[in-house]
Amino acid sequence: MAPNRWPTGTFMNRLTNELRSELLELGALRTFPPGHILISQGDRDTSVWLLLDALVKVTGTVENGVEATLAIRVSGDIVGDMSAMDGSPRSATVAACGRAICQQIKGPVFRSFVARRPAAALALAQVVADRLRWANQRRLDFAGYETKICLARVLIALISRHGRATDDGVSIGVPLTRAELGMLVGAKEITAQKALRELAAEGLIRRGHRDVIVKDPAELTKIADLSLLAKPYL
């Protein structure tokens, strides 16, 4: 059996080799440039996108035009599954952060796959549960902690799932602006910037262009009141 190369917790990681192979036979391979919109909020299309080699941002816009970054999805993840399963309009926009290689599967085809493959249905349910857990945790964090601690928690979650080693620490591995980091913890940009400055002044992080380097993960974990061994929320 070939080793599972997909990141832990992703939809593809949760499938057996047999199910992954079957799923990849159901759709068309597509390649997109950075910034391409895979899914637009409000659209009625029901295609599912498997992220084979991609990093995407999930954003939503409310009635007054304010946009919020809701989540990050990586290779092995699935997006568009909610509309595929219930036929409802797209609840968010999904955009590629870099060059993206994806598998497009039509909604009815994906539903048929899940219906005849109980193990795939269970894997999808587990993915949905993880997303709900992430959303609930962010709400609890914002209600119970100051922005600095909320931000520390998100940074730890990001490096746990997407982190990339550098000469002076661990990059969060995701191209996020300070405003987008703030959105992930429900804070305004100016508040998020203040929290980032405090963490940087304490020598815990280094801020770069659309990147954050965590210089001391163990100490940041203490600030966040978490365990490095805890399951990441992302």
Rank of each mutant, 00 (worst) to 15 (best):
L70N: 05
R73A: 15
V74E: 14
G76L: 09
I78R: 07
V79F: 07
D81L: 03
D81K: 01
M82Y: 06
S83N: 03
A84C: 08
A84M: 03
S88W: 02
R90A: 12
S91E: 12
S91N: 11
A92N: 06
A95F: 04
G98K: 09
R99G: 15
A100F: 06
I101D: 14
I105V: 14
F110I: 06
R111Q: 13
S112Y: 01
S112E: 15
V114T: 10
V114F: 04
A119L: 07
A119C: 04
A121V: 05
L122S: 04
L122I: 09
L122A: 05
A123D: 01
D130N: 08
D130M: 05
W134D: 10
A135C: 07
N136I: 06
R139V: 09
F142D: 10
V154P: 00
I156D: 02
I156E: 06
A157L: 00
R161T: 13
H162A: 14
T166K: 09
D168T: 15
G169D: 13
P175D: 11
T177L: 05
R178V: 05
L181C: 03
L184D: 05
G186H: 04
K188N: 11
K188F: 10
I190T: 15
I190P: 01
Q193R: 12
A195L: 09
L196G: 15
R197G: 08
L199E: 13
